[in-house]
Computed example of a mutant assay.
Amino acid sequence: MTHLPYLTPLSPDQQRAFGVLDPWPLAIADRVRFAELDPLNHVNNVAYLIWFESARVTYFKHVGISTYADDAVEPRIVIRRGEIDWLAEMRADEDYVILSKAVAYRTSSFTMQQEIWAGGRKRAAFTCVIVLLQPDGNGRMPIPARILDYFHEFDGVERRVDAP
């Protein structure tokens, strides 16, 4: 395998070379660090949540939901609900790829799926509902049309019947 660039979006070909069967619109690679291990010498469960969060922030920046630079105009982004499946353990020094995409949306919220792949197989999966709030936290913020366009064009989300 060729060098895997860490913390940089991977092309579909790089994803396939790593063992991801069906490339996703956004994939980020990294490596398990010693500090992420538990006493049993495998990755601690909380590390997966941190990895998913880091990939989500990259996704939000990549898509244009938030740059995390202007609290006065950018939405507050909150997780309403999340569900994780730990499918296989991971160990020190393993390379992994985190896949992220939107899979459904409503007016001010969307469902996001994420997966962690290592060694040619899925190791963990996370599904969460993200809600956009007004910058001051006073009520929900509708998902901007440009973000919906991204969901359709790149993530493959089907248009809602009542969507513009």
Rank of each mutant, 00 (worst) to 15 (best):
D85Y: 03
L99N: 05
Y6W: 01
D30S: 15
V78Q: 07
P135M: 10
G156H: 04
L37P: 00
L40F: 14
I98Q: 07
D136G: 10
A55I: 00
Q114M: 11
I143W: 03
P9F: 13
T8W: 10
T8Y: 11
L133H: 02
P25A: 09
Y48G: 03
V73T: 13
I28D: 13
G19Q: 06
V131P: 03
P75E: 07
A118G: 13
R33P: 00
Q134A: 12
N44Y: 12
A35M: 11
T127Y: 05
L37R: 11
S100I: 03
T2I: 08
S108Q: 06
N45P: 01
F34G: 00
H62D: 10
D95N: 14
L21Q: 12
A47S: 14
W24T: 02
M1D: 08
G119V: 00
D162C: 06
L26C: 06
A29V: 00
E115C: 11
L4P: 01
M90R: 02
I65K: 13
F52A: 04
L4I: 01
E83A: 14
M1Y: 06
P5K: 10
R140Y: 00
F126Y: 09
D155Y: 02
Y96W: 02
Q113E: 15
I77K: 07
T111V: 11
V129R: 12
V78S: 09
D85V: 00
F126D: 09
D38L: 06
C128T: 08
R121P: 00
D162K: 08
L49F: 04
T111M: 10
G137K: 08
A47C: 04
N45Y: 05
G137R: 08
D149K: 15
I98K: 07
N44D: 14
A102E: 03
A47T: 06
I65N: 12
G19H: 05
I28G: 15
R56V: 04
I143D: 05
A125M: 09
I28T: 09
P142D: 09
R33Y: 10
V63Y: 11
N138P: 01
V103G: 07
A47V: 04
A102H: 02
A104Y: 02
W117F: 05
Q114G: 08
A17P: 01
L49D: 00
A35L: 09
T127Q: 15
P23H: 12
I130G: 14
L49N: 06
L40Y: 13
V43G: 05
Y48H: 11
F126G: 06
P9S: 11
V129D: 12
A104V: 00
W117R: 07
S100L: 06
D70E: 12
H152E: 09
A118P: 03
Y6C: 10
R123I: 00
R121M: 07
D38R: 01
T67N: 15
E74Q: 04
Q134S: 08
L10K: 04
V32G: 07
I84M: 14
A124H: 03
E115K: 15
V63G: 11
D13N: 11
R160S: 08
Y150H: 15
A118H: 03
V131M: 13
Y6I: 02
